[in-house]
Computed example of a mutant assay.
Amino acid sequence: MVTRGTRARTTPASVAYVSHVLDPGGVPPRMLRSTRLVDLVNTMDPKLVAAAFGMTAERVMIYLADRVDPGRLPAGWAE
Rank of each mutant, 00 (worst) to 15 (best):
T6A: 08
T6L: 07
R7A: 10
A8I: 02
A8W: 07
A8K: 11
T10S: 10
T11W: 02
T11F: 00
T11Y: 03
P12N: 05
A13G: 07
A13P: 03
S14T: 15
S14D: 09
V15L: 06
A16P: 00
A16L: 04
A16Y: 01
Y17I: 01
Y17S: 10
V18G: 03
V18S: 01
V18K: 03
V18P: 02
S19T: 15
S19C: 05
S19Q: 14
S19V: 00
H20E: 13
H20T: 11
V21W: 03
V21G: 05
G25P: 00
G25V: 12
G26D: 06
G26V: 10
G26T: 07
P28E: 14
P28K: 11
P28Y: 05
P29A: 08
M31Y: 07
M31A: 12
R33N: 02
R33A: 14
R33M: 10
R33C: 04
S34Y: 07
S34E: 15
R36S: 08
R36Y: 08
R36M: 11
L37P: 03
V38I: 13
D39I: 02
D39H: 10
D39N: 07
L40A: 13
L40E: 13
V41D: 02
V41M: 08
N42W: 08
N42P: 01
P46G: 13
K47M: 09
K47S: 15
K47F: 02
K47P: 00
L48D: 15
V49H: 03
V49G: 06
V49N: 08
A50W: 03
A50V: 10
A50F: 02
A51Q: 12
A52W: 01
A52F: 00
F53A: 09
G54I: 06
G54P: 01
G54Y: 00
G54S: 06
M55Q: 12
T56Y: 05
T56R: 09
A57M: 05
A57V: 10
E58D: 10
E58A: 15
E58G: 12
R59G: 02
R59W: 05
V60E: 04
V60Y: 01
V60G: 05
V60T: 12
M61N: 14
M61V: 05
M61A: 15
I62K: 13
I62A: 12
I62H: 13
I62F: 04
Y63A: 06
Y63K: 08
L64D: 10
L64N: 12
L64C: 10
L64G: 07
L64W: 00
A65Y: 01
A65S: 14
A65R: 15
A65W: 00
A65M: 09
R67Y: 14
R67S: 11
R67M: 11
R67L: 09
V68R: 13
V68S: 06
V68C: 07
V68M: 11
